[in-house]
C-alpha cells in the first residue's frame, strides 16, 4: 500500500446500538482528492471525526503516512498534519480574522507555555498569517471579528486556519452546505488553489457538481459501509448509489430536463 497518505483499515464506530461506521476500509492516495458521498446518517461525518481524533474508533486501524494514529489524541493528530473544517462552520467568532489564523500557528500551538515569552505580534508570524489571508482573499478583512464575516468568507477563514498548521491532509466536511451556485463555484476554485499545498484531501459533499469537479475518486457510503468506489462518474451512476440517493437524483434529473 505504498503511496497512500491515509489508510483506513476495517474501522468501526458504535454509538450504543447504532453502528455509525461499520468495518470500513479505504485509502487516500498520494495527491488525491477523495470524495465521500452518501445519504444523511451514512456515517460520513463520523468518519471524519474518527480520522481527526474527535472520536476514537472501536475497532480497526488508521494509518497516516505509515504512523498508526488510531489511539492518538486530538492534538497529537493535529500536530502530525491532519487538519479539518466543519459542516457547521466553527471559527473563533470573538477573535479577529488575523487572530484566527495566528492561533493556528503550529510553533506556538505545540508549545503554548513557551509562547508566553514570545512577542505576540512578531513580524514573521504576522507576515505568514497575512500571506495565507491574501491567498484566500481575506486580507482586507484581517482586523474584523470572525463572527461578523459573511458565510462564504467564514468558510474561507476556516480553510485558511486549517492551512496555517501546514497540514498534509485536509478533511472538508460538506464545505458547500448552505452555499448558492456562485459561492460554490468560488469554493471549487479555492479548493483547487489549496491542493498544491496538500498531499491529500477528503471531501464530504452532497453537491454532485462539486464532487465531479474536485474529486479524483469517490467512495459512496450507506449505513456505515462502503457501497461503491471508483471514478466520480462510475460511482454516481452506480445503481445502488442511485437508489440510496433516489430522491435527490430524481430531483436532479427533473431540474436538468424540465
Amino acid at each position: 500500500m505504498s503511496g497512500a497518505v491515509l489508510e483506513i483499515d476495517a474501522v468501526t464506530k458504535r454509538f450504543g446500538g447504532l453502528v455509525a461506521v461499520d468495518a470500513l476500509t479505504l485509502e487516500v492516495r498520494e495527491r488525491e482528492a477523495l470524495g465521500i458521498v452518501g445519504p444523511n446518517g451514512a456515517g460520513k461525518t463520523a468518519l471524519i471525526n474518527i480520522i481527526s481524533g474527535f472520536y476514537r474508533a472501536d475497532g480497526g486501524a488508521i494509518r497516516f503516512r505509515g504512523h498508526d494514529i488510531t489511539r492518538l489524541k486530538l492534538h497529537q493528530i493535529g500536530r502530525l498534519g491532519i487538519a479539518r473544517t466543519f459542516q457547521n462552520i466553527r471559527v473563533f467568532r470573538r477573535m479577529t480574522v488575523l487572530e484566527n489564523v495566528m492561533a493556528a500557528n503550529p510553533r506556538h500551538a505545540a508549545r503554548p507555555l513557551r509562547s508566553f515569552f514570545v512577542a505576540g505580534a512578531a513580524q514573521a508570524d504576522v507576515d505568514e498569517a497575512m500571506a495565507l489571508l491574501e491567498f484566500m482573499g481575506l486580507a482586507e478583512r484581517a482586523d474584523q471579528l470572525a463572527g461578523a464575516l459573511p458565510y462564504g468568507d467564514a468558510r474561507r477563514l476556516e480553510m485558511a486556519r486549517a492551512l496555517a498548521g501546514k497540514p498534509k491532509l485536509l478533511l472538508l466536511d460538506e464545505p458547500s452546505a448552505g452555499m448558492n451556485e456562485e459561492e460554490t463555484a468560488r469554493l471549487i476554485a479555492d479548493i483547487g488553489k489549496c491542493r498544491a499545498r496538500l498531499d491529500g484531501i477528503v471531501l464530504i459533499e452532497h453537491d454532485m457538481t462539486m464532487i465531479r469537479e474536485v474529486a479524483d475518486r469517490v467512495v459512496a457510503m450507506d449505513y456505515g459501509k462502503k457501497m461503491a468506489e471508483g471514478t466520480p462518474e462510475a460511482v454516481l451512476n452506480d445503481p445502488h448509489v442511485r437508489r440510496a440517493y433516489l430522491g435527490l437524483m430524481e430531483s436532479d434529473v427533473a431540474a436538468a430536463h424540465p
Binding site: L74, G78, R94, A109
Partner: peptide, 18 residues
C-alpha cells in the same frame, strides 16, 4: 490567543495541536 481559542472552542483548539 491560544487561551482565547481554547475558551471559545476547546475541541477546535485541540485539533489545531493545542
Amino acid at each position: 490567543r491560544l487561551l482565547d481559542a481554547v475558551r471559545e472552542d476547546e475541541l477546535v483548539a485541540g485539533a489545531l495541536g493545542v
